[in-house]
């Protein structure tokens, strides 16, 4: 066992861990940050995605001892950091509880079971950090290491677009089901 000093969501946390402890184990089992999920054991699903110095990585294949001194952001860190930023900057008018990407995911219905979402939201947040108006193709590519089994990705992509539109002050793009449909054919009416 070794005493590690990890900077997680802005806080420095000291804890004892074995050399083989992964960041996933430490976050979930030592720090109680259970928003970081375990889905596949070995780097195949992306549910354990966290940000390391702003970049999405897989906590299940990261040794905790090797990320000392780096900025680790988990899903639990997004909203508080957002609120801190809002408080610091007087021009921010909206001080929602949620980080804008989280808010967009919630609004767009991107959260079904929610199990892949913390990783997905972190991948999306990192994308929007480097490209605040990503094309659909770019969004798909940036999220292609995060498996979702519920949504078919559509509402997730819509959520990222919504966050981008919100950021730019644009109108939201209409979704397929919001387009006008044909007139009822008179069948099935009660």
């Amino acid at each position: 066992m070794e005493v590690l000093s990890l900077k997680v969501n802005g806080d420095t946390r000291c804890l004892a861990a074995a050399p083989q402890a992964t960041l996933l184990e430490v976050l979930r089992e030592e720090l109680g940050l259970t928003g970081c999920k375990q889905g596949c054991d070995k780097g195949d699903c992306g549910a354990c995605t966290v940000l390391l110095d702003g970049q999405p990585v897989l906590a299940c294949l990261t040794l905790a001892a090797l990320v000392q001194g780096r900025e680790i952001t988990t899903i639990e860190g997004l909203a508080p950091a957002h609120r801190r930023r809002c408080a610091e900057s007087p021009c921010a008018s909206k001080q929602d509880k949620l980080h804008p990407v989280q808010d967009a995911f919630d609004e767009a219905g991107a959260l079904q079971c929610g199990f892949c979402q913390s990783g997905m939201i972190l991948s999306a947040t990192a994308l929007l950090q480097r490209d605040d108006d990503p094309k659909r193709e770019t969004i798909r590519e940036a999220l292609s290491g995060n498996l979702c089994r519920c949504t078919g990705y559509t509402q997730i992509i819509e959520a990222v677009e919504r966050a981008s539109d919100e950021h730019a002050g644009r109108e939201h793009r209409p979704r397929a089901w919001e387009q006008p449909a044909t007139e009822p054919a008179g069948e099935g009416e009660s």
Partner: peptide
Amino acid sequence: RKVDGAAKATGEALF
């Protein structure tokens, strides 16, 4: 919005 949407978006939801 889903009743548990915010909890899932923030990682607060417990599985």
